[in-house]
């Protein structure tokens, strides 16, 4: 059992957990993830290690509730425990002093980009971050990013905060204004990562994305996480999760992630009905 020390919503449906996992805290590097299983009978899901505290022996994960497992996870609070946590898995981010490095996060992707932004700063880069959300309340980790980035640009689709538009529009603006950009990291929904890759491709800017296929073991044993990169099959859990954005076949990734769409919708529906029942029972009491 892995104890939850602290749990707090950062945005609607996005929750941060600090979890006791001293070994992982000690070993993890930027870009790596854990696989967790909440309880017996639960699914194994991958989540990026957003931060760690080696002294306290804790790791931080930031979770967006989108399906049954993440929704259930987000009902847990400090004092609760998670049955299984394994990691750190995947290759650490490749970090060097590129010059100017931009980290782009869309929605919960900001949480996944954050540890790499920290490492890019530590390596001596001039760091910029563009953090996007649908509206103001979905822009997360702005204060944290400000501590490790020389420039931070929040963006919102509806213009309720920061730059009005998509993260790619802000990126294009920076490129057009003559900012010298040596490295771009983009993490978020697949269409966003694809759009960033398309934006930087004509300029030949080195661009890396972190892929999020469906995983089971996370150790290279099942091949379920395979993706197509540079026309070759890779296992994202051990060969990645970060890859050269200009070589990734996003279309294949997007449709493979839909493999269980119908079953998962059913499972989430059942779970929400269950939560409603509990809610109503509590009202009666």
């Amino acid at each position: 059992m892995y104890k939850i020390i602290n749990a707090k919503f950062l945005a609607p449906n996005i929750k941060r957990f600090v979890i006791e996992a001293p070994k992982i805290a000690l070993k993890r590097k930027a870009g790596q993830f854990v696989i967790i299983r909440i309880k017996d009978g639960g699914e194994r899901i991958p989540l990026t290690i957003a931060d760690s505290d080696t002294l306290a022996g804790t790791i931080t994960i930031i979770v967006q509730g989108i399906g049954k497992t993440t929704t259930e996870l987000n009902t847990l609070n400090s004092g609760d425990a998670i049955l299984d946590v394994v990691g750190p898995l995947g290759k650490p981010s490749h970090i060097e002093n590129f010059g100017t490095a931009i980290s782009i996060g869309g929605g919960v992707g900001t949480a996944i980009a954050y540890p790499t932004a920290v490492a890019l700063k530590a390596a001596g880069n001039h760091t910029i971050s563009i953090i996007g959300g649908r509206s103001k309340e979905f822009v997360i980790l702005e204060d944290e990013m400000k501590k490790v980035c020389d420039e931070v640009y929040p963006t919102t689709d509806d213009g309720s905060y920061g730059f009005h538009g998509f993260v790619t529009q802000k990126l294009k603006e920076l490129i057009d204004s003559g900012t010298k950009i040596d490295f771009v990291l983009a993490i978020g929904p697949i269409p966003m990562m694809k759009a960033v890759a398309d934006t930087t491709r004509p300029y030949g800017i080195k661009t890396v994305v972190s892929l999020n296929p469906i995983m089971v073991d996370g150790t290279g044993m099942c091949g379920g996480c395979r993706a197509t990169v540079d026309n070759k099959t890779v296992f994202v859990c051990v060969d990645g999760p970060e890859f050269d954005a200009h070589l990734v076949d996003f279309k294949t990734l997007e449709r493979r992630n839909k493999t269980y769409r119908d079953s998962e919708a059913e499972s989430l529906h059942d779970y929400k009905c269950y939560l409603d029942q509990i809610f109503e029972a509590n009202l009666k009491n």
Partner: peptide, 22 residues
């Protein structure tokens, strides 16, 4: 076969949605 059998045997997908793995 590893993925298919792991989903069904280890993760008990044959009992989905009682078990969470499809």
């Amino acid at each position: 076969s590893n993925e298919f059998l792991t989903r069904v045997n280890l993760m008990k997908a044959y009992k989905f949605p009682e078990y969470d793995t499809p």
